[in-house]
Amino acid sequence: MNIAYWIVAGLLALFYIYSGAMKVIRSRDRLRPMMAWVDRIPLPAVRALGALEILGATGLILPPLTGTAAWLAPAAALGLVLLQIGAIAVHLTGEDRRITLNVGLIATAAVTAWLATIW
């Protein structure tokens, strides 16, 4: 199960580091083609969401890697589940109703949380 955790958590962390970095660094105009919802959310909130995604990805990798505070890995995975539940709510309240990626990320983060509790 340890190998399964590292594969799933590693892929999830890569996705969230990339996505979070884009939200933190890019302007609203450069985010708009990929994320139609950025016009409805204040830019500081978009930046905060990006920072949360980066922190969640870090929480998936660093605690198991260092062997300290192992409870942070499942907590980070559950935090990412909650983040995606909020993302689905934002998508469904606007014109952008594409939530397939969000549902997939919820499932992946839930599997990661489960794998983090059994290793």
Rank of each mutant, 00 (worst) to 15 (best):
M1K: 10
M1T: 12
N2S: 12
N2T: 13
I3V: 11
I3T: 14
W6M: 03
W6C: 01
I7F: 12
I7M: 09
V8Q: 08
A9T: 08
G10T: 06
L12T: 14
L12E: 13
A13I: 02
F15A: 10
F15N: 10
F15P: 00
F15L: 10
Y16L: 01
Y16V: 00
I17G: 01
Y18G: 03
Y18F: 04
Y18C: 00
S19N: 14
G20M: 03
A21H: 03
A21R: 06
M22W: 01
M22P: 00
K23M: 12
V24H: 00
I25T: 12
I25A: 02
I25D: 01
S27D: 14
S27L: 02
R28Q: 15
R28Y: 05
R28W: 05
D29F: 01
R30F: 02
P33K: 09
M34Q: 15
M35R: 11
A36H: 11
A36Q: 15
V38T: 15
V38S: 05
V38Q: 09
R40E: 15
R40G: 11
I41L: 10
P42W: 07
P42S: 03
L43A: 04
L43V: 12
L43H: 13
P44N: 07
P44E: 07
A45V: 15
A45Q: 11
A45M: 14
V46C: 01
L49Y: 03
L49S: 13
G50N: 04
G50K: 04
L52G: 15
E53G: 01
E53D: 09
I54M: 12
L55G: 10
L55V: 07
L55S: 05
G56A: 02
G56T: 03
G56N: 05
G56C: 02
A57L: 01
A57N: 06
G59S: 05
L60R: 13
L62P: 11
P63G: 09
P64N: 08
P64A: 03
L65P: 09
T66V: 08
T66D: 03
T66F: 10
G67K: 06
T68R: 10
T68N: 11
A69W: 14
A69M: 11
A69I: 05
A69R: 10
L72V: 14
A73W: 11
A73P: 14
P74T: 06
P74Q: 06
A77R: 13
L78E: 07
L78N: 04
L78Q: 05
L80I: 04
L80A: 04
L80H: 09
V81A: 01
L83D: 13
L83M: 12
L83C: 02
Q84D: 09
Q84I: 00
Q84K: 06
Q84G: 00
I85C: 11
A87S: 15
A87F: 03
A87N: 14
A89G: 15
A89C: 08
H91I: 03
L92D: 08
T93F: 00
G94V: 05
E95R: 13
D96Y: 00
D96G: 02
R97V: 00
R97I: 00
R97G: 08
R98E: 15
T100D: 13
T100L: 07
T100N: 08
L101F: 09
L101C: 00
N102A: 15
I106P: 12
A107S: 11
A107W: 04
A107L: 15
A109K: 10
A110K: 05
V111R: 04
V111P: 08
A113V: 09
A113I: 08
A116C: 07
T117M: 14
T117F: 08
I118V: 15
W119E: 10
W119C: 00
